[in-house]
Design a protein around this nucleic acid. Structure first.
Lengths: 190, 190
DNA sequence: TGACACTGACTAACGGCATTAGTTATAGTG
DNA sequence: CACTATAACTAATGCCGTTAGTCAGTGTCA
């Protein structure tokens, strides 16, 4: 039968990411990915360490893309604008790639998977630098970043899982949520 | 063999909730619940509509408990204090019952499961009433509640999935996040 | 060029889980 | 006391992940 199809890890990840974004992370099973690639499930083990490995690769893939997206947003004028654009980009990525975004949680423990941990920490680090550069007290940044992350992630998660009743004006709500927090963060402890 | 063990729906839910809170929602499988109850998996179908049905019952159970918890917090003096206590109670419930809290998402679509929808809407409705009573413009409450829910849920979700790097002072961060948002919400558009 | 190891596909088999269909004994009701 | 509904059961199917063992094509090196 078919031998040496010439499959690469990137190939596997791309297919898995597509399925995850289309049908949800759960749907990106080894079976589904293998079928889509035209191979049998066990053959995937030559590229990926089982389902857990596939999930890990997806998380890494997502973290890298997210880092790029967030890095692009860092090229603005004022700190407010940087934070606003970062938040918007973050949400846009999540809505465009719900499967990949889901793969981003849970995070690994600090000592457990250094590569993944570093990749996931990158956007947060960028944000931290921005805040410090804006004159925010370094002691406070930890708390402030947590607030920002909480608002943005919470909003996205509720939005994706349909936790909001009325479907309209969600964009407006997001803008207001982000503005409110940014304002509070930058004025409160400068 | 053993017949008529005298099992009730509440029994099933209690066991499932215990497993979910101890080992995670995923671990509350039909198999695990049946084993714990001393019956075989198919027998559960006499009490619950499969795994989806069990999850639905867990969500309903969680929503009712959450409503109680939130309702208790509504008995404070100032609107600020009500909101603060509500946020704290919400988080405490999530940390005490991580499995049940997970079952609370995703929410059903408005027309899909009216009982569950109503149960899950109750805490939000309580909050909305509180805000309006505090003099917040009714037009704005939708946005404001979304902000509050986003911060609280986002914080909890990141906390539970270990999305925060440093383990210490998470309580402090939560208080600051909530205070910041409450302040902004109540002062911004009163 | 030809032997040879490596790679990456395969088949076979197992175990966990959810689900459905069909069976049977118990418990409550007339 | 018979009858019916209930709530347990067994048996069987299918999906999924995983492991072990097999085998053919690919590239390398003497």
């Amino acid at each position: 039968m078919g031998k040496k199809v010439g499959l690469t890890l990137d190939n596997v990840i791309d297919v898995a990411a597509t399925i995850a974004d289309r049908d949800g992370l759960e749907a990106a099973s080894l079976r589904a990915v293998a079928d889509e690639l035209g191979i049998k499930t066990p053959s995937l083990y030559n590229h990926v360490a089982g389902l857990a490995g596939l999930r890990r690769e997806l998380a890494l893939h997502a973290a890298r893309q997210m880092s790029e997206v967030v890095a692009e947003a860092a090229g603005s004028d004022t700190p407010e604008e940087i934070l606003r654009r970062t938040a918007r980009s973050y949400r846009r990525f999540a809505l465009d790639h719900p499967g990949l975004y889901s793969a981003l949680l849970p995070a690994p423990k600090p000592g457990e998977d250094d590569d993944l941990y570093a990749a996931m920490a990158a956007p947060v680090t960028t944000l931290a630098d921005t805040l410090v550069a804006a004159g925010v007290d370094e002691q406070q940044t930890t708390h402030l970043i947590r607030t920002l992350r909480a608002v943005v992630h919470g909003f996205i998660d509720l939005e994706m899982k349909d936790g909001f009743g009325m479907p309209e004006e969600v964009d407006v709500s997001f803008e207001r949520s982000v503005d409110l927090v940014i304002e509070g963060v930058l004025s409160g402890a400068k």
